[in-house]
Lab assay of single mutants.
Amino acid sequence: TYYTVKSGDTLNKIAAQYGVSVANLRSWSGISGDLIFVGQKLIVKKG
């Protein structure tokens, strides 16, 4: 599943919304830090 980052989103908010960890969200999407951008597509795998 892809999630497109919206204004005001954080990795914590997105992870909580999908019931996954921030570490997994980073790993799946190839992100090393906490910086995400509006319009960026993140990969989300539901448990």
Score class of each variant (00 low, 15 high):
A15G: 06
V20H: 02
V22I: 11
G39N: 06
Y2F: 12
D34K: 07
T4K: 08
K41V: 15
I43E: 06
L35K: 13
T10V: 04
K13D: 12
I14D: 00
G33D: 11
G47D: 14
S32R: 10
K13Q: 11
K13S: 15
F37P: 03
A16R: 12
S29A: 08
A23Q: 12
S21P: 07
S21L: 07
T10A: 04
A16M: 12
L25G: 00
S29L: 05
D34R: 06
G19D: 09
N24C: 15
T10H: 04
N24F: 08
L42H: 01
V20S: 03
I31M: 09
K6M: 10
A16W: 10
I36T: 03
G8A: 04
I31N: 03
G19I: 04
K13Y: 09
A16S: 11
D9L: 02
D9G: 01
D34N: 11
T4Q: 08
S32A: 11
D9N: 02
T1Y: 14
G30V: 06
S7A: 15
I31R: 00
I43C: 13
V38M: 07
K13I: 10
K46F: 14
D34I: 07
L25N: 01
Q40W: 06
I36E: 02
V38R: 06
S32E: 15
V22S: 06
L25P: 00
V5Y: 03
T1C: 15
L35V: 14
K13G: 13
S32Y: 10
I43T: 10
K41S: 09
Q17M: 15
L11N: 00
Y3S: 00
N12K: 14
K46V: 15
L25R: 00
A16F: 10
K45M: 13
G47F: 13
L25M: 06
A23G: 09
N24V: 12
G39S: 04
D9S: 01
N24Y: 07
G39D: 05
L25W: 02
Q17W: 12
K41A: 08
G33P: 03
G30A: 08
V38D: 06
S32I: 14
N24D: 15
N12A: 15
I31T: 05
L42S: 00
Q17L: 15
I36C: 05
G47P: 15
V44L: 09
G8N: 06
K6S: 07
V5G: 02
G33W: 06
G47W: 12
L25H: 00
W28C: 04
T10E: 05
S27V: 12
G30K: 10
Q40H: 03
Y18T: 07
L35W: 11
G19N: 11
D9A: 01
S27I: 14
D9M: 02
Y18S: 04
K13W: 10
N12T: 15
I14W: 02
N24A: 12
A15R: 01
S32M: 11
T10W: 03
V20A: 05
K45C: 14
K6H: 07
Y3T: 03
I36N: 01
A15P: 00
V22E: 09
A15S: 08
S32T: 14
K46H: 13
V44M: 07
R26A: 09
T10K: 04
K41G: 06
A23L: 08
Y2H: 09
S27G: 09
A23E: 15
W28M: 08
G19T: 05
Y3H: 12
K6W: 03
R26G: 04
G30H: 09
R26Y: 05
S21Q: 06
G33R: 05
S29Y: 03
S21G: 05
R26S: 07
A23Y: 08
N24R: 09
N12I: 15
G33S: 11
T1F: 15
T4C: 11
W28L: 07
G30R: 08
G8W: 04
A23D: 15
L42E: 00
V44G: 02
Q17N: 10
G47L: 13
L25A: 00
N12L: 15
F37H: 11
G30M: 08
Q40S: 05
